[in-house]
């Protein structure tokens, strides 16, 4: 599967580089623009999470753009993040986070509208693109908390995007989310459900050349645990990247990241924040 995905990445990136290639005085060519949504991402950073620790990130990114099949004439901008993981091998507070799949699918339409199905259909303006964000299999393990783990089995959010960008470089989406998670403390599993009682926001900004990237995601809302009172939890993550160099045309960016969790970190539903600064290599990120 990985081989097939790499081949797809290579195919997607080949032949689209015309304006992104520059030539020096010696006639040597090199890339000067990149796609931060594609490639194999490898990151190394220093993180502060109640103490300084190294952090490693990895993941497979794939971004596609296609015409809608059922609604021909409109575009789908799709972002996939496959097998992403972050490890903080701290001595006293080690952490592992891994997500099987994350995807954001946005359908762009030139002129959004609400159709009221009267005998002569009425068309009302609706200034939003519609998107859906899904997450499957987000695993969080903190050995210092004991034998337990947290597993968000699935999350789906229905999002509106008022920016309605005709490119994949910009999006701002928000909307309700539904999710199920299990917190296992080593003895008992507690199920947590958020039946559209959470809200999600997802902001992505990139320069056309891919040198600068900003990504902000947030999730907040009420979660219900069977047999217990519902509670409010929130989580946010912001990341800024600036391209600093490229190795064999594979971009390396300086990355600054801040994340925070309110009653949502680890098995103990802790409140915490973290920040990190490092470098990210994106293989095939063209």
């Amino acid at each position: 599967m990985l081989g097939g995905t790499l081949a797809l990445l290579a195919t997607l990136t080949a032949g689209q580089l015309g304006d992104c290639v520059e030539e020096d005085e010696q006639g040597r060519q090199f890339l000067v623009c990149f796609d931060p949504g594609n490639g194999i991402e490898l990151g190394l950073s220093a993180a502060e999470r109640g103490g300084l620790t190294p952090a490693l990130d990895a993941g497979l990114l794939l971004r596609t753009e296609r015409e809608s099949v059922s609604k021909e004439g409109t575009l789908w901008f799709n972002e996939h993040r496959i097998l992403s993981a972050r490890a903080e091998p701290s001595e006293d507070r080690p952490l592992l986070e891994a997500t099987l799949y994350q995807g954001v699918f946005r359908r762009h339409i030139a002129e959004g509208f609400i159709l009221v199905p009267t005998p002569r259909p009425i068309r009302l303006p609706f200034p939003f693109d519609i998107a859906i964000a899904v997450t499957a299999g987000r695993y969080e393990r903190r050995p210092f908390e004991g034998a337990g783990f947290t597993l968000e089995t699935a999350r789906a959010a229905l999002l509106l995007d008022p920016v309605r960008s005709p490119t994949r470089r910009v999006h701002l989406s928000f909307g309700p989310a539904i999710s199920h998670a299990v917190r296992y403390d080593g003895q008992e599993a507690a199920h947590e459900l958020s039946p559209l009682t959470s809200g999600m926001v997802d902001l992505g900004l990139e320069t056309e050349d891919g040198w600068w990237t900003l990504r902000l995601t947030g999730l907040a809302g009420w979660v219900f645990a069977p047999g217990a009172e519902g509670f409010f939890r929130a989580r946010a993550d912001a990341k800024v990247e600036r391209l600093v160099l490229a190795v064999n045309d594979h971009p390396v960016s300086a990355t600054a990241r801040v994340s925070a969790a309110l009653a949502d970190a680890g098995v103990g539903r802790n409140t915490e924040w973290a920040a990190s600064l490092g470098l990210t290599l994106r293989l095939f990120g063209r």
Partner: peptide, 24 residues
Amino acid sequence: WVRDERGRVMQVNFDLNRRIYLGG
């Protein structure tokens, strides 16, 4: 699909047996 006087097209017939749904 139908088109209005301005030429904008819109879907007025839906197959709910082919869909991905989310509800409350």
